[in-house]
Design a protein around this nucleic acid. Structure first.
Lengths: 182, 182
DNA sequence: TCACTTTCTGAACACTGTGTTCAGCAAAAT
DNA sequence: ATTTTGCTGAACACAGTGTTCAGAAAGTGA
């Protein structure tokens, strides 16, 4: 690919990332992105059809980095017996998030948060599947899933929203303590 | 208040409510609201400064109905000993939500969902306060609060999103089963 | 180096939606 | 009956989106 294309593309991503640190995506104009990226208007629109498409593509790329190879690579993921393996996996994900702290944090306001949630849910379905069916509580499977995954994603959002103060290990421990209760 | 004002105000509310059933608030134009409500453009703007203010006021009014007198009226709310009183209170809230099913459901997409969450959190702080400090798990108070309230609000959103299939009692039971685990 | 292809540029444009203004009309209040 | 208040709708200014296109600039290959 032409170097020029690469250059403008990253210029746009960088510009948007920078602007997202100050305000929500909804409130940022294409013109601001263009100015910040220092490119021509038509250049922007030759790379992205709309502002929303830019966000989506940027998130796509970023989340695929965050979750890349995080899920079920070598191991045949046996999350049933005890929860240690699952905990390790989840902690691993949180480390990835911490690596991308700057980008992720700025995305967590406004519409873009929904993209994160959707992505995250998708990736977690697999991981949590075994564990959920293994928890012995007398409620419907749907409800269990909703509760377990929902509270985890919620916790992670809370963690990000508070500037990732705690370590991934602490978060996972606290989460499991609340969820399993001895 | 002048009858005319009342009429236009409810016409606007009704129009927006009707439109919200079909698409998200973000995608609805002021002109559509005006046409649906069958009023003049300047009339709209003499009642509400902006489209967002309309949403906010409408939600305000509605949520204050939903949560009205729901919290701590007669009883000196002792939610510590067992959870029965808290459960009754929460179930009561869910019944109120069910009463406003039409309006609430249409609000639960797009930006307006956030208003709901904010409101709900506010109202719940009180109710959950006692209970949270009484749960004996070795995690920080902040985390406990985040987990307990977050998972409850999440559950309610899930319930609403699925068309309020279950009864309030079922939801509360399931929630407490997952939370307390015997 | 010279032709060639691709990408970038930016001004001009059409379009959609927002919120304001104002003169005239209709309904309520006194 | 008169005054006050609210409704009307066309006209307007403004901001943001996305398109177009001719020309400049940068990369490619002989």
């Amino acid at each position: 690919m032409d170097r020029r294309q690469q250059k403008t593309r990253t210029a746009i991503y960088d510009a948007l990332t920078k602007l997202l640190r100050k305000r929500r995506f909804e409130d940022i104009t294409v013109q601001e992105i263009i100015d910040e990226a220092n490119i021509g208007r038509s250049t922007f629109y030759s790379h992205f059809e709309t502002k929303d498409q830019l966000l989506e593509q940027m998130c796509d790329e970023m989340f695929s980095h965050v979750f890349a190879e995080t899920l079920l690579p070598e191991k045949s993921h046996d999350f049933s017996a005890n929860h240690e393996e699952l905990k390790a996996l989840l902690e691993h994900i949180l480390w990835h998030i911490k690596d991308h702290e700057d980008n992720i944090s700025s995305i967590m306001y406004g519409e873009s948060e929904k993209l994160f949630t959707r992505y995250f849910s998708g990736y977690l379905e697999d991981a949590f599947g075994d564990m959920i069916s293994n928890i012995d509580i007398d409620v419907s499977a749907d409800f269990k899933k909703q509760f377990v995954m929902g509270s985890f994603i919620n916790t992670v959002k809370w963690w990000i929203g508070n500037g990732l103060e705690q370590s991934p290990g602490e978060i996972i421990d606290a989460y499991f303590k609340c969820l399993i209760k001895k």
